[in-house]
Amino acid sequence: MDTIVTTRSLTKRYGADYRVNSVNVEVNEGDIYGFLGPNGAGKTTTIKMLLGLVKPTSGQVLLFGKKFSENRQAILKQTGSLIESPSYYAHLTGLENMRVIQRIRDVPDKNITEALRIVRLEKQKDKKVGQYSLGMKQRLGIAMALLHFPKLLILDEPTNGLDPAGIGEIRELIRSLPERYGMTVFLSSHLLTEIEQIATSVGIIHDGQLLYQGSMDELKKKHQAVISIKTGDNERAMGLLFHSGFRAAFTDGFLRLPALTDSEVAEANRVLVHSGIDVIRISEQKKNLETIFLELTGKERSL
Rank of each mutant, 00 (worst) to 15 (best):
T6R: 13
R8P: 00
S9Y: 05
G15F: 07
Y18S: 07
S22E: 07
V25N: 02
V25D: 00
E26V: 14
V27M: 09
E29Y: 02
D31W: 00
Y33V: 10
Y33D: 04
G34N: 08
F35A: 04
G37H: 02
G37Q: 05
N39Q: 14
A41M: 13
K43H: 12
T45L: 02
K48G: 11
L53Q: 15
P56Y: 00
G59H: 05
G59K: 03
L62F: 15
L62T: 13
L63A: 06
L63C: 04
Q73T: 13
A74F: 14
I75W: 08
L82D: 02
E84N: 15
Y88N: 09
A90D: 09
L95P: 01
E96N: 01
N97G: 12
N97C: 11
I101Y: 02
R105H: 11
K110Y: 11
N111S: 11
T113G: 03
T113Y: 03
L116H: 04
R120S: 12
R120N: 12
V129F: 07
V129D: 04
Q131I: 08
S133Q: 10
K137R: 13
R139H: 07
R139G: 04
G141I: 01
I142R: 00
A143C: 07
M144C: 09
A145S: 09
L146C: 07
H148D: 11
L152D: 02
L153I: 03
D156V: 12
E157K: 09
L162K: 05
L162F: 08
D163P: 06
P164C: 13
G166W: 01
I167Y: 08
I167S: 07
L177H: 05
E179W: 08
G182T: 13
V185D: 04
E194L: 04
Q197H: 09
I198Q: 01
T200S: 12
G203T: 06
G203D: 03
I204F: 01
I205V: 14
H206C: 06
G208H: 01
Q209F: 04
Y212K: 03
S215H: 04
D217M: 09
E218D: 14
L219R: 00
K220G: 01
K220W: 00
K222H: 06
Q224K: 10
S228I: 02
T231H: 05
G232K: 11
G232Q: 08
D233Q: 13
D233G: 05
N234M: 11
N234T: 11
E235M: 10
L240N: 04
H243E: 15
G245C: 13
G245L: 12
F246L: 06
A249G: 11
G253Y: 11
A259P: 06
V265R: 10
N269I: 13
R270P: 02
V271M: 11
L272H: 00
H274S: 15
H274C: 09
G276A: 14
I277S: 04
D278S: 12
V279G: 04
T291I: 09
T291L: 06
F293D: 06
L296Y: 12
G298M: 11
K299R: 15
E300W: 09
